[in-house]
Structure formats: structure tokens, C-alpha cells
Simulated scan of single mutants.
Amino acid sequence: MSPADAGALLALADGYHARTVRPLGSTETAGHVVKSYAIEAPGRAVTDQDAQAALRIAAAHLSSACLRGSIGLSVLLVHAGGDGDYVLVHTWIEGYMSDLAVFTGPAGEINGLRPGRSGLAPCVWEAAVLAHERDAFSRHVLDGAGALEERLSAWRGDVLQGEVR
């Protein structure tokens, strides 16, 4: 059985490459502990100003997160992509589930990001970071031992850094 669009799949494979991921620290905003990351396409960089703008976007989104069942932990991805800029706000919510908001816009215009279209999901590089964060959340917060503050400290310290594919 062959794929419906073999040409498109092969074109994706030909252009596939590693992207750099680096932690941007954690902070508290809008009643949430927010753990932040930069994801950078070749030739692109996430600046301090980009990170601050992304935190403002996250704060606005998280200000109503309790209505979506938030339990107060969030991961912020600031992605300087090859075709534009992206901010993802991933929030752990009740029932072992998560909430995801994706904001998109032209490259270099992070202050102009708007909510992505309905159904938009993480790209392969963003998904790699979120997979790490799922494991860190499960390992340190859900399966962790000790007081909650110790578990949260371990979660905040468990970061992904380097290249992802």
C-alpha cells in the first residue's frame, strides 16, 4: 500500500533537519508555574524580547485557564520557525488531560501573533519538547515522592536542551 501523497512525504523527508531547543527558565504568571523553551530553526533565534512577548501571550491565555480545568502548571514554547513564529501554551488540566493553544504569525513579528486555526497541532519539533514535558510531569509530579514543592522543583529542573529531530 502506498501513501496518498508520496511526493509530499518525500519532500518533507528531504527537508527534515534538527532544530535547537533551549530552556528559558520558569516563572509564575496568571496563577501558573510556566516552564519556557525556545525552539530555533537554522538561521533563526528567539530573543529576550520574543520570550517576553510570548510570556504576555501566555499570561493572557492562562488568565482564564481555570475555566478549562487548569491545575496550575504550564509549558510555553517560543518557536522561531522556518516559515513563521509560533507560541504554544500547553497546560495540564483536570483528569490527566491537557489544554493546548497555538498562536501563529509571520517570522520576526511575535507581537503580531494570533490564535492558530482550529485543529492546528504541534509540529514534529514542538511535539518532541512536549513529549519530554509529558514524561517530566509524570515522573516528578504524578509519580514523585515528597512534598509538592519538592516535586514541582524537580519538574522545573528537568529540561530538554540541544538538538531535536
Rank of each mutant, 00 (worst) to 15 (best):
A4V: 06
D5T: 09
A6L: 14
A8E: 12
A8N: 13
L10G: 03
L12R: 12
G15V: 00
T20C: 09
V21S: 11
S26K: 06
S36A: 11
S36Q: 09
Y37N: 04
I39H: 06
E40R: 13
A41P: 11
G43H: 07
V46G: 04
T47C: 08
D50T: 14
Q52V: 01
L55K: 15
R56Q: 10
L62P: 04
L62G: 03
S63Q: 05
L67F: 02
L67N: 05
I71N: 02
G72Y: 02
L76F: 05
L76M: 07
A80H: 15
G81R: 07
G82I: 01
G84W: 08
G84C: 08
D85L: 11
Y86D: 04
V87E: 05
H90T: 09
E94Y: 03
Y96H: 14
M97C: 02
S98R: 03
L100H: 12
L100K: 13
A101E: 03
V102L: 13
V102M: 13
P106R: 15
A107H: 15
G108N: 14
G108E: 10
E109W: 10
I110M: 15
R114D: 05
R114L: 14
R114V: 14
P115W: 07
G116V: 00
R117F: 01
G119Q: 13
G119H: 12
L120V: 11
P122A: 08
V124C: 06
E126R: 11
E126A: 08
H132L: 05
R134S: 03
V141Y: 12
G146E: 07
A147S: 14
E150M: 10
G157R: 11
V159M: 04
G162R: 15
G162M: 05
E163Q: 14
